[in-house]
Design a protein around this nucleic acid. Structure first.
Length: 275
DNA sequence: AGCACTTCCTGATAGC
DNA sequence: TGCTATCAGGAAGTGC
């Protein structure tokens, strides 16, 4: 499932291909994935525009257009954006929308489980995407510092795992990297966020930055579907220490990894190492 | 306001 | 082998 490292890898892999390209036609095959405006108007807004650059806010991809509007994509669970130089979608399953460029190239949006979300927003409409506008500080930025993490965690009694997944506190963490960060910080996912000491939040801060940095360096984690904008799989899946390793020995102490459900999410941890 | 819980959605997989 | 039940989870919505 695309989280910050995967979405960032998609962004980088697409940037060199789509920046400067002019959109000739847009087709949507599953209109309910277009959240704003209505699907026909969405297509009309993109047609004739040139993509200036591609940015990212948390897990949102933002393709900035020459008229100051943005084509925004959230991949959710199984979304993919794939560039094709010759305009062919061959080998790509579940194509839900296509963007065709003047020079014959194309950008395809694929999504097996159809939870993805597409937008074409003018600057004054950005508040419609409340969660994007309220995105918390992202790992590996100056704003995401140990003092911030300590202060914000202190004020929340929710379980640590749920706290980490809330995008308004930290931008871009998802289920995989949250579990991996808690393992490295040796913290139990079920603890209240407010129970963390200053030393523990420092460990957690470092662990979050570490797993996100390594995830990006590895081009993301491919468990089933994930591919970048050029079709490459990630390399980080072989380095996961707890995620989806239920019953397997903890890489530190050998104790079998436990799985529980927190906030409706599968949560994996070492019952001995994590306190 | 904060938090827990539910809903959406369908392909892949496990189990019989 | 083939069928069915279960699982996967980001974000929005609901209700306490």
């Amino acid at each position: 499932m695309p989280e910050l490292p995967e979405v960032e890898t998609v962004r980088r892999s697409l940037a060199r291909h789509i920046a400067g390209r002019e959109i000739m036609a847009v087709r949507v095959f599953l209109p309910r994935l277009v959240k704003w405006p209505e699907s026909d108007l969405f297509c009309a807004r993109l047609t004739g525009r040139t993509i200036r650059e591609i940015d990212r806010t948390g897990k949102y991809l933002r393709l900035r257009l020459d008229d100051a509007a943005e084509f925004i994509v959230h991949l959710k669970m199984t979304g993919e954006l794939m560039f094709s130089a010759d305009g062919s979608s061959e080998g790509m399953g579940f194509v839900r929308a296509e963007v065709r460029f003047r020079d014959g190239a194309a950008l395809f949006f694929g999504d097996a489980r159809t939870l993805g979300a597409l937008y074409a927003l003018r600057p004054e409409e950005l508040p419609r995407l409340a969660s994007m506008m309220a995105m918390g500080p992202e790992p590996l930025t100056e704003a995401f510092c140990p003092a911030y993490l300590y202060e914000i965690a202190r004020g929340h009694r929710a379980k640590l795992k749920s706290f980490l997944l809330n995008q308004k506190y930290i931008g871009g963490l998802g289920n995989i990297y949250a579990d991996e960060a808690l393992f490295r910080a040796r913290l139990r996912p079920g603890r209240p966020a407010s129970s963390l000491s200053r030393a523990e939040t420092e460990r957690l801060h470092e662990a979050i930055n570490e797993v996100i940095r390594e995830g990006i360096d590895d081009g993301g984690t491919t468990i089933r579907n994930y591919r970048d904008g050029e079709g490459h799989v990630g390399l980080h899946q072989d380095k996961l220490r707890v995620y989806q390793r239920t019953g397997a020995p903890c890489p530190v102490c050998g104790t079998p990894i436990k799985r529980v459900v927190i906030g409706g999410r599968g949560t994996h941890y070492c019952p001995k190492c994590q306190k």
